[in-house]
């Protein structure tokens, strides 16, 4: 049997409140298993303990009770982090380093060096679309760009597990779609992804399994399809149907035992609208970037 990518057992974390007797319970009796190769989404409202859980898994915060493992190795051991890439929420890196220098620094921390590291940096900068900004200091990066460099940094040593804390926070729809595609691509390559989010629509698109946290307690867990399917309902989406045809279908339904719950015009999503409207400007945005680089 292979070890799970992440195992959390009986995890409880209390944060003491200064000058108070009782403490904040961030996570309570949490049990979690992420199998190798799956995309697991940890969902929950603000303050439900998602970030705390991820930090404990990475050994950045020590648990009050319980234990966590990565590929069978205790999170408290430094070597458990050997095959993990982590993107913290709202990542913030050294402002005085350029994008390229940042990746080199993190690569060296992972024991990389020389030509392989150089190639890897080029690869990742292309991957996250920051080739033009590679020589700029991170102090001048926008929030979305920081998120991208954070993602590149997490992937620098080609880890087997990637932990992402709200990977799309502060990223525009086009960017977050790219991040989604990237995560799907990681899954295709057999890399395990553990991510946290409160953007449910997005989690729905990419997660194999989700766990829902509320006040530090895991209230739901399971395969996404099973969790969200409404067993006794079916949706039809029809294009170019004439009104008589629709009336006919409706009367067919009424004659049977089934019940028509809703009849409406399909709408596009705001996201799709946004993407369509801004797609043309995408090139303009790029050449804008270019102009800035050329001015320097």
């Amino acid at each position: 049997m292979t070890d799970p990518a992440v195992a959390v057992r009986g995890l409880t974390k209390l944060f003491p409140v200064p000058f108070h007797r009782q403490s904040v319970v961030a996570v309570r009796d949490l049990d979690l298993r992420v199998e190798p190769g799956e995309v697991y989404g940890l969902l929950g409202p603000n303050g439900s303990g998602k970030s705390t859980t991820l930090k404990i898994i990475l050994g950045l915060v020590s648990p009050t009770r319980g234990r966590t493992e990565i590929f069978g190795r205790d999170s408290r051991l430094v070597e458990s982090r050997e095959a993990v890439g982590f993107l913290p929420e709202n990542p913030y890196f050294y402002k005085y380093l350029t994008g390229e220098e940042t990746l080199r620094f993190f690569g060296r921390l992972c024991g990389l060096g020389g030509a392989p590291l150089k190639n890897r940096i080029n690869e990742l900068l292309t991957l996250v679309g920051l080739t033009k900004a590679r020589k700029r200091r991170l102090g001048t990066y926008s929030k979305g760009m920081l998120q991208r460099i954070g993602l590149a940094q997490a992937l620098i040593h080609d880890p087997k597990l990637v932990v992402l804390d709200e990977p799309t926070a502060g990223v525009d729809p086009a960017g977050s779609r790219e991040i989604r595609d990237l995560i799907l691509d990681l899954r295709r390559r057999g890399i395990t992804v553990l991510l946290s989010s409160h953007l449910l629509a997005q989690a729905q698109e990419i997660c194999d399994r989700v766990g829902i946290l509320a006040d530090g307690v895991l209230v739901r867990e399971g395969r996404l399809q099973e969790l969200i399917a409404i067993e006794n309902q079916t949706e039809l989406v029809i294009a170019d149907a004439s009104p008589p045809l629709v009336d006919e279908i409706e009367s067919l339904i009424n004659r049977s035992n089934a019940k028509l719950i809703e009849r409406r015009k399909s709408t596009t999503t705001l996201e799709r609208l946004f993407l369509e409207a801004t797609a043309k400007n995408d090139e303009a945005r790029m050449s804008n970037d270019e102009r800035i680089t050329k001015q320097k």
């Binding site: 190769g37 190795r73 095959a83 990389l112 690869e123 040593h157 595609d181 691509d185 057999g190 890399i191």
Partner: peptide, 23 residues
């Protein structure tokens, strides 16, 4: 973003814990 740049796919949980790149 579906990069061909990356080396071929790897089956999950394959061989040890080390990543392919790092020592």
């Amino acid at each position: 973003l579906t990069l061909q740049r990356f080396p071929g796919r790897r089956s999950p949980g394959e061989g040890g814990n080390a990543s392919t790149l790092a020592k």
